[in-house]
Amino acid sequence: MTPRAVAATFLATACLAGPATAGCGDDVAAFRWPDGSTEFKIEIADDAEERARGLMFRESLAPDAGMLFIYERPQGVAFWMKNTLIPLDMIFIGADGRVNGIHSMAVPGDETPIPGPSRTLMVLEIAGGRAAELGLVPGAELRHPRLDQAAALWPCGQP
C-alpha cells in the first residue's frame, strides 16, 4: 500500500470512529437526561485500596472533574467523608447506568455513613453542589465503557 493510501485509510477510519466513541473513554463519565447533558474528566477507583482512599486529602476538585468508584457487582454501598477536605456530591449509579440517587453536599470530615441505593455498581464523586448546578437528577443515564454495554441504557457508540 502506498503512503498516500495508508493515510487515506487512516483518515477514513478516524472519521468513522470519531463521533461514535466521543465521550466514551475510561477517563470520561458522560451523563444525559431530558433537560441536559454533561461530561466529567474522571479518575477510576476500582479496587479496595483505591476506593478506601478516594478523594481524601484533596484540597480542591475542578468543576468538571470527579472520581468514579466501580464495584465488581451491584451491591449496597456506604461512603463517609473521613479525611476529605472538600464538600462532595455523590452520584449513585446502577448496573444499567441509571442514576439511582444523589447525595448532595457531603460534609468534609463527617464520619456518618452515607448509604446509597441497593444494587449500586458505581458512584461518581464530584464537587459539592455541582449536580444541582447542572440539573443532574436521578434517572439520568451514564455512558461509560466499564458498564456492561448490552445492559447499558446509553451504550458507547450511541450518540
Rank of each mutant, 00 (worst) to 15 (best):
V99A: 02
G129V: 00
I93N: 12
Y71K: 11
A78Q: 09
P145L: 13
K82W: 04
R98M: 09
E125F: 03
D110Q: 14
L134T: 01
G129P: 01
T112N: 13
A132L: 05
D89M: 01
V99N: 00
L121H: 08
W80E: 05
F79P: 01
G94A: 15
E141A: 13
F92N: 02
N83Y: 06
V107L: 13
P113T: 07
L124K: 06
L88T: 05
P87G: 08
S104E: 13
S118G: 08
P108S: 06
G94M: 05
V107K: 13
M122I: 13
G101E: 02
P113Y: 08
I102T: 13
M81V: 07
N83I: 11
Y71W: 15
A140R: 00
I114F: 06
E133D: 15
T120D: 07
G101F: 02
S104A: 14
P138K: 06
D96G: 10
R73E: 14
P117Q: 14
G109I: 12
G101P: 02
P113Q: 08
A127R: 06
A131R: 01
S118W: 10
L88V: 08
P145H: 13
A132F: 00
G135V: 00
E141Q: 15
Y71Q: 07
Y71M: 11
D96Y: 01
G76D: 07
G129E: 00
A131M: 04
S104M: 09
A140E: 07
A78C: 10
L142D: 06
M122H: 15
M105H: 03
L85T: 06
A106V: 09
G76Y: 03
L136N: 00
L124I: 09
H144S: 13
L88D: 05
A140D: 03
A131Q: 02
N83G: 10
D110M: 06
P87V: 10
A78D: 12
P115H: 11
F92T: 01
A78W: 04
I93R: 05
P145F: 15
L142T: 02
A78T: 09
I126F: 05
T84A: 12
T84E: 04
G128F: 10
E125C: 12
Y71D: 05
G116T: 10
G101M: 12
Q75T: 12
E125G: 13
A132D: 11
L121Y: 12
G101Q: 06
W80R: 04
N83F: 07
I114E: 03
H103P: 03
P108E: 07
T120P: 04
E133Q: 15
P74F: 10
P145R: 12
T112A: 15
R130S: 00
H144T: 14
R73Y: 09
G135P: 01
R119I: 02
W80V: 10
Y71E: 14
T120Y: 04
F79Y: 09
R119W: 01
V99H: 05
R73M: 03
H144W: 09
D89R: 08
A95W: 04
R73G: 04
G94K: 08
V77A: 10
M122Q: 10
L85G: 01
T120G: 11
V77F: 12
E133K: 11
V123C: 14
D89E: 07
I86V: 15
G97S: 03
P87K: 04
I86K: 02
W80D: 03
E141W: 10
R143F: 08
E133P: 00
I86M: 06
A132I: 07
L142I: 10
A140S: 12
N83T: 11
